[in-house]
């Protein structure tokens, strides 16, 4: 475990806590894409199939349980909580994510470390995580304005994958046979998707104006 990866896990955890805080405190999920949250829940459920079989460390096991539980809690809130579900922008959150799920699954069948159930689902979760933010970015573009908490949520989420890429570079140079091509390439694509958001976020911070995404 190196500092970059630990920082990446922490920014990832913070992004989820920001979202839970926003939903719990404001009892509203306006501006949040349910589809992105469902994709993240699917990412964690398919990635941590080895939760009970491969014990790596207490830290890993605890974090996996926290990620699965929190992502399911967010989806449950947005679908079932009587107050929260009313504020869901149903007609703005129209990204057809089922095609993305299908494409990632087909890709995982073709490109994986080993053709086993666990490895195919692991690769699937890696590809899916790279594009899971798309419905959220589309929703932000549609709704135009980005409220602070949602903006910070996306910012921390982007920082997490960016830190993971630094972690992979670090491990590549410090460990002999370290290669994670699938995760690296997919992580680069994922961080690239955030790049334009980061740009507008930086502009809004620099010019001290409300974050506006070009429609």
């Amino acid at each position: 475990m190196n500092i970059f990866r630990f920082a990446g896990d922490m920014t990832h955890l913070i992004s989820i806590l920001i979202l839970l805080l926003k939903i719990y405190a404001t009892k509203s999920c306006a501006g949040i894409s349910l589809k992105t949250q469902e994709l993240y829940a699917l990412v964690f459920l398919t990635r941590y199939l080895d939760l009970f079989t491969d014990y790596v460390s207490l830290y890993n096991t605890v974090m996996k349980i926290v990620f699965i539980a929190s992502s399911l809690a967010i989806v449950w809130c947005m679908r079932r909580h009587p107050l929260v579900r009313r504020s869901y922008d149903k007609d703005l959150d129209t990204f057809r994510h089922q095609y993305v799920v299908l494409a990632c699954f087909v890709l995982a069948l073709l490109l994986n470390e080993k053709f086993t159930i666990q490895e195919v689902f692991w690769a699937f979760s890696i590809y899916l995580e790279a594009v899971a933010i798309l419905p959220q970015l589309v929703l932000l573009q549609r709704s135009g304005n980005v409220d602070n908490l949602t903006g910070q949520y996306v910012l921390f989420l982007g920082a997490y994958r960016g830190l993971y890429i630094i972690n992979w570079i670090y491990r590549y140079f410090t460990e002999d046979h370290f290669t994670r091509w699938i995760a690296c390439v997919s992580g680069l694509v994922q961080t690239g998707l955030y790049a334009d958001f980061f740009y507008y976020y930086y502009l809004s911070w620099k010019t001290n104006t409300k974050l506006k995404l070009p429609a």
């Binding site: 990866r5 896990d9 990832h12 990635r47 080895d50 491969d54 790596v56 460390s57 890993n60 974090m63 996996k64 990620f67 470390e113 080993k114 692991w122 993971y164 972690n167 046979h177 994670r180 995760a183």
Partner: peptide, 10 residues
Amino acid sequence: HDEHHEHDEL
């Protein structure tokens, strides 16, 4: 034994 490829990251 073959190098047990475990995913040690999250």
